[in-house]
Design a protein around this nucleic acid. Structure first.
Lengths: 129, 129
DNA sequence: CAGGATCCGGCTGGATACTG
DNA sequence: CAGTATCCAGCCGGATCCTG
């Protein structure tokens, strides 16, 4: 629910014990999650190594890529395979669950590509128009 | 891009000057935005007054409802109508643009309702399984 | 190579008090 | 009634340094 904090001021979040949509948005809403899913989806069914993933996600730091992938792996959206060589090679790939999420995200992307310009215009109009 | 800050450390976000999807996620990812859109969509085509909206969004504070609505209005997703009585009455309604966003969000909601349980299970499994 | 640990600034959002 | 203003805690995420 995002309305974390367990006891929340007085009441408030007892009404919807767990809203799945908010739980989902709390994940894909973080800065790099959706880009990681997209990047892995574009590569599928191939797996992608950490460094390559980093290269394909301009601007992400080593830390945030690591954090993002760990989170996705915990969620069962991404599978992680370690090749115990020296130096180690770690590869990632979307799971089936991850692929189905990507399909759902594609809808949002389409909407964004079609309509974000309108939102921008609305903002400019509000600024002074 | 979220990678705000215009000049970003060195380079990094120059590669995708404006990713519409991130811009969108930066909006609907905020805590109350999607719930507000959903609540207004459920009421459509009727408009909803501030206080009533507040009642229908358990847990939201006056401030956050105000901030959320102002943002949605600026984005052209919600229209705002003021009835200049005393005390004033202000009503909100989804615009067409807002309705189309709601349609896109519905896809995410469906996915969330169908799959969040799997994600929860994956997390439990990771915790100790 | 992959990623853990640490430090820290900035933004998000909650509580509270005050207005037209 | 419908906000706005202020204060402040907590979390997100960036930079940097270190390791198997």
């Amino acid at each position: 629910m995002t309305t974390r904090g367990a006891r929340a001021a007085g009441r408030g979040d007892l009404f919807d014990p767990q809203c799945p949509t908010r739980q989902l948005l709390d994940r894909i809403g973080t800065k790099w999650t959706s880009m990681a899913v997209k990047t892995l989806a574009d590569a599928a069914p191939d797996e992608v190594r950490f460094a390559e993933l980093r290269r394909r996600m301009p601007g992400i730091s080593q830390k945030m890529l690591s954090v993002t992938l760990r989170s996705l792996t915990r969620d069962g959206l991404v599978s992680r395979r370690v090749d115990p060589t020296v130096p180690p090679q770690v590869s990632y790939r979307l799971t089936e669950l991850g692929s189905s999420l990507e399909a759902a995200l594609a809808g949002l992307r389409t909407w964004a590509e079609e309509h974000m310009a309108e939102i921008d215009r609305a903002n400019e109009a509000a600024d002074e128009g």
